[in-house]
């Protein structure tokens, strides 16, 4: 079992519904967010192109954040989900420095907070909140180890990329071109 996400950048319109859904589902403090939208503008007027990416923790296969955590609060849970145990976290910030994606932040209560792939929803057989609200259905979630899953099929059929692959973190979130 290896959870992963596949996001079709051709369908994404950057509406930020995923961001709001996550904030609501996970009681994310106001002003904070576990996922966010990046907008890339390319070319010169009038030949411009716009590209959206909804970003979050990549639940990397090779996790610099877990490696640098001095207490073991940052850990890889079942299915490759990268999580933080709040009452083991001392709030040193090592994992925030280690993440090339800026996916982690200090919760106002002091511990480090991040995306959990909505593992409480996964237990009930639901998709993560961001995936299930997407109005363009550009996001797909599933088991990358299962060749019959939606995500595996999409990765086989379509060209895809990950963010900052040169950091060597082996992200588990893939973007379709």
């Amino acid at each position: 079992m290896r959870y992963g996400m596949v996001i079709d950048t051709n369908k994404c319109v950057g509406c930020a519904d995923c961001v709001v859904a996550c904030q609501t589902e996970n009681n994310v403090p106001i002003g904070y967010s576990r996922d966010w939208i990046m907008e890339f503008v390319e070319g010169d007027f009038p030949k411009l192109s716009l590209h959206f990416e909804t970003q979050r923790c990549n639940h990397c296969d090779d996790t610099p954040c877990v490696r640098t955590c001095p207490t073991g609060a940052s850990h890889v849970a079942e299915g490759g989900i990268v999580k933080v145990t709040h009452n083991e976290c001392i709030g040193c910030g090592a994992c925030i420095e280690a993440c090339p994606y800026d996916a982690r932040y200090f919760h106002p209560d002091g511990y480090v907070d991040k995306c959990t792939f909505c593992d409480h929803r996964l237990e009930d057989g639901l998709d993560p909140a961001c995936v299930s609200v997407c109005p363009t259905e550009c996001m797909h979630f599933g088991d990358l180890d299962d060749p019959g899953s939606d995500v595996s099929k999409l990765l086989k059929e379509r060209d895809n990329y990950t963010i900052i692959p040169e950091a060597g973190t082996k992200p588990q979130i893939f973007y379709l071109k």
Partner: peptide, 26 residues
């Protein structure tokens, strides 16, 4: 003083993690 979750600082000495420089440094 720089920790954000100060009351849990003792967690630093509940484990030794060779991979984490901050742990073996402590």
């Amino acid at each position: 003083f720089d920790l954000h979750h100060k009351l849990f600082v003792w967690q630093l000495f509940m484990t030794a993690r060779a991979e984490s420089p901050m742990s073996w440094g402590a």
